[in-house]
Design a protein around this nucleic acid. Structure first.
Lengths: 194, 194
DNA sequence: AAAGTTTTATAATGGTCAGTATAAAACCTA
DNA sequence: TAGGTTTTATACTGACCATTATAAAACTTT
């Protein structure tokens, strides 16, 4: 007998996530969230909670999205998958709507939220672990030496690329970095074959 | 016949710079600046101008500091200097007061200030160019191939390392990344000798 | 149509901040 | 010591923000 919820919670959360991604935590106001989601300020609070809680849920949604990317990229783990992944890192964005020149929402968060949001730390660390493990698994699958250290290097390289992208605001800014990463991956591959 | 300025403007600016470095732009208030510099809020405004202007001057001071580091690190340019530089990147901080686990003030700024401060862009780009040129010069001095692209890679790697450092809040977090960068530098070196 | 719930619009509350005003205190020079 | 300037402490202003309150409007079921 009640009026049903008009908006789709999943869609709204995704819109909120994109807003946080684009403008950061402090740079996002309730008003912006309301406009982006099409949901009233009060409605947002009722459904998702405080701003902190909305951000937390947005971060979770972001990680879920990233997990899908990882799963797809490393469906068949191995150095080939890694090479393909780093080649794509330097390529122009797929679509106009592509957010990839905004860098990574969670990496951005590390820089913005260092003074509060201790639970963000968990998000970021879990996120980093996800990438690290995906990279390490692929290196191991191809019997590459020193897989752990090299996976750490790849994570760092990816983050460096994200910094570049964020600075120049163009995904192609990461091309030289991605290229050298690919060269390095190939050299590890041939080192194993030798 | 006037009361002389009690504080040292250079010292005050350095204190302001460290405050911005540690807390970011938005995270720094007039009050914090006043406490850090020991100068009254009004005095700060009188001497340095608005918060934006203080930040701009702090960024200039930061770049001057970085320039001294670059000059010292690459006094005799060459691949050896680069190797030494990246080896140091993964080492624990020299002193307790070392700010190196705060990452780089200007890289942090890219992430925080994307929505305003257009003149920050110039600072960051000039800063990036400074590193890029120092790296490229050193690669050329040792007759390394593809110096430009590889210098871009090194800049990206350094920024990746700074992200790691900032995340884990420990300089040693960058050790694996720095190690692989050093390996890569050595491989470029031996490639030339072949 | 009636009852009951969820929306929305509007604005009030309490907090923080940048920037400015005011006046008292500190300090130099003559 | 007296005059004049700079500093400091204090607090005000106007703006913005997160969050909550209020009540009108929308809508669904019975």
């Amino acid at each position: 007998m009640a009026r049903p919820r008009k908006f789709d919670e999943g869609k709204a959360l995704e819109a909120a996530m994109l807003t946080f991604w684009r403008h950061g935590y402090d740079g996002t106001t309730y008003k912006m969230l309301s406009e982006a989601t099409g949901v009233d300020v009060k409605g947002l609070s009722n459904v998702f909670g405080s701003k902190d809680e909305i951000f937390d849920k947005a971060a979770t949604a972001y990680r879920a999205m990233a997990r899908r990317v990882v799963r797809q990229s490393f469906e068949t783990p191995g150095i080939e998958a890694l090479i393909a992944f780093f080649e794509r890192l330097g390529e122009p964005p797929a679509s106009e709507e592509d957010m990839s020149n905004m860098g990574c929402m969670l990496v951005n968060t590390i820089f913005e939220l260092h003074r509060f949001q201790p639970n963000m730390r968990e998000h970021v660390e879990a996120y980093r672990s996800m990438w690290l493990e995906a990279f390490e698994t692929s290196l191991n699958a191809s019997d590459i030496d020193k897989a752990r250290d090299r996976a750490e290097f790849l994570v760092g390289s990816m983050w460096g690329a994200l910094s570049e992208i964020r600075l120049v605001r163009s995904k192609t800014a990461a091309a030289p970095l991605a290229q050298v990463a690919v060269d390095t991956l190939r050299s590890w591959q041939s080192e194993r074959e030798a």
